[in-house]
Amino acid sequence: MNSITLNPEINELHTLNNFILNELQKENFQVNLIAEEIFVNIVNYSKTEFITVNIEYINSTLTLEIIDNGIEFNPLLKEDPNLPNDIDEAEIGGLGIFLTKEMADELEYRRINDENHLKIIKKVE
């Protein structure tokens, strides 16, 4: 398992994407979107001091564990938004956690020692 610790700043997203690409050895839109949505939410709302990402890629299964010491937040408890009937009714924002839930194969949240631990498991072909 490889790890990286990032500052909670949007400009660190590029570093995170490169870290994931280095592990996968290929681009994956869904993995990038999941990582970006979770990272940006942590940066914008958690008041964390750091974001640590652990990554493991074995037998086409990617496991990302994202850890921060910010405000306790279990994204699995967030209610899914009401989806618009068409694109003209769509509002900006509010879909990141929903999309993560839809795209990930498994999600697990735990609060350990005043840290949020979100584990994301995704099959990647």
Rank of each mutant, 00 (worst) to 15 (best):
V124C: 05
A104R: 11
V31Q: 04
H14V: 13
L83K: 02
G70P: 03
E36G: 09
E102M: 12
M103V: 02
P8L: 06
E89Q: 14
V43W: 02
D68W: 08
Y57L: 13
R110M: 11
N85E: 15
Y109G: 10
L95Q: 11
Y109T: 12
P84K: 01
R110E: 14
D86E: 06
N18R: 07
T100S: 13
I87P: 05
I97T: 15
V31T: 14
I55G: 01
I66V: 15
T15R: 09
E91M: 12
K78Q: 15
N54I: 01
E125K: 12
E125A: 10
N22M: 03
P84L: 05
D105S: 13
L6Q: 01
V53H: 03
E27S: 10
I4P: 00
F50S: 00
I66H: 04
E102S: 12
D68G: 04
F29P: 00
T5P: 00
N17V: 02
N74Y: 13
S60G: 03
I34S: 03
N116G: 08
I58A: 06
R111N: 15
G93D: 12
H117E: 07
I97P: 11
T61I: 15
D88Y: 14
E56V: 09
D68S: 07
N54K: 09
F73G: 04
N17M: 15
S60E: 15
N22L: 12
I92W: 06
L24E: 08
S3N: 12
I66A: 08
E27D: 07
P8A: 12
L62K: 07
I92P: 02
I34Y: 03
E27F: 05
M103D: 04
P84H: 02
L62F: 04
E49S: 14
F98V: 09
G70E: 04
D88A: 04
E36F: 07
S46V: 05
I112P: 03
N69V: 02
N113L: 07
I38V: 15
L76W: 10
N17W: 01
A35S: 15
E37Q: 13
F73H: 15
D88V: 03
F73T: 05
F98T: 06
E37N: 14
V124Y: 06
E36M: 13
F39D: 01
L62Q: 04
I120Q: 09
I51P: 00
N82H: 12
E49Q: 13
V40N: 06
I120T: 08
E27M: 05
N82W: 06
N32D: 08
N54T: 02
I51H: 01
K78Y: 09
K123Y: 13
N22E: 12
T15C: 05
M1E: 11
F19V: 04
P81W: 05
N28D: 14
I10W: 01
I51M: 10
N44I: 04
